[in-house]
């Protein structure tokens, strides 16, 4: 039943991808197709990364409302980006773009996220309200610090940061995309081998430990994974606050299962489907008259509220 739904999701995604690639294909079609293929790859990567990261984070925090974005993961990434440009100057920062830049950013992001969120999850696990509050405060702090740094910058640096923050699927850095896909493949490989233990971890720290799971070590690894996935998604398109929540709610209500072997692929497929469909609508129907984030958060918000009222999401 759940497996059949996964196949159906895959079919929908393939249809959406085909629509995105071939709708309104005119003129130098080989060239346009290549551009669209790169964009499609980025959309798929970001959607899958955001979906999987959110499901993983909700498993760790034992909570279905929290997402990495609410807890300030992507704000942290933007702060690091801004800090990099502010620290090195526009010339220095432009020298480390491409693959080395991506690697450096990801490494810094991993270290910072681990230091912060290991402590946060450890201290506030028993108290969800406290965890949400701490996450929201952290997110606001990162955002204000980012804004503060941007005020101190000179205009050329600021332009650079802005270009990095709002890349939005138009000018995609192909080297970064490749590196991101590589990183996601590694993450996927790890998940393929370890999805069973995540099912146990979802029971919570106490029960998981009494079943012999080395929970703290597992949590460290999964946090690494989340930080890497959020970095990929944010590096490619900038922050998308609502996508993760929508995707994980849909994945849970569609799969009706605790098994990560079903939840994670579902989240990846739904995330990718939403982004591809949203981008198609945004480019072909709205003629770029808005931003993709607005399309997704507007439609996604309605869908989320609708499902919530209908009792399909709990």
């Amino acid at each position: 039943m759940a497996e059949r739904r996964l196949v159906a999701l895959g079919g929908l995604l393939a249809a959406a991808a085909a629509l995105f690639l071939f709708w309104g294909l005119r003129g130098p079609s080989a060239y346009i197709l290549e551009l669209r293929l790169v964009k499609l790859a980025a959309l798929l990567a970001v959607g899958a990364a955001a979906g999987v990261a959110t499901v993983l984070f909700q498993t760790l925090s034992q909570n279905r409302i929290l997402t990495p974005s609410i807890m300030g993961f992507d704000a942290l990434f933007l702060l690091l980006q801004t800090g990099l440009v502010a620290g090195l100057g526009a010339a220095g920062a432009s020298r480390i773009s491409g693959l080395p830049g991506f690697a450096l950013e990801t490494a810094v992001m991993l270290a910072a996220a681990l230091a912060l969120f290991t402590a946060l999850l450890g201290r506030t696990r028993h108290d969800i309200q406290l965890m949400v509050l701490a996450g929201v405060v952290l997110g606001v702090m990162f955002r204000t610090l980012t804004a503060f740094l941007q005020r101190l910058m000179d205009p050329s640096e600021f332009t650079m940061v802005e270009a990095r923050m709002f890349a939005q699927f138009s000018g995609i850095d192909r080297a970064a995309l490749l590196a991101g896909l590589g990183l996601m493949a590694l993450a996927g490989l790890w998940l393929l081998r370890n999805h069973h233990v995540l099912d146990v971890a979802a029971l919570g720290r106490g029960p998981a430990r009494s079943l012999g799971v080395a929970y703290d070590r597992l949590q460290l690894r999964v946090l690494c994974l989340i930080a890497a996935l959020v970095s990929v998604a944010t590096a490619l398109v900038g922050p998308m606050a609502f996508l993760g929540l929508l995707v994980s709610s849909l994945a849970h209500s569609l799969m009706q299962s605790h098994r990560h072997a079903l939840l994670l692929p579902a989240a990846a497929l739904i995330g990718a489907l939403i982004l591809v469909a949203g981008q198609t609508v945004f480019e072909r129907l709205l003629h770029l008259q808005s931003t993709l984030a607005v399309v997704i958060e507007f439609c996604g918000g309605f869908l989320f509220l609708f499902l919530l009222v209908k009792g399909k999401i709990r």
């Binding site: 498993t59 233990v197 146990v200 029971l203 079943l211 605790h258």
Partner: peptide
């Protein structure tokens, strides 16, 4: 071990929960 306030965040069916008891023997 059976803890005092046994509750879980994820939606688990009773059969699957009991199946988790077999984790130490079969790793899922």
């Amino acid at each position: 071990v059976v803890a005092q306030q046994a509750s879980v965040g994820s939606r688990v069916r009773v059969r699957d929960l009991i199946g988790f008891g077999r984790w130490p023997h079969c790793r899922g």
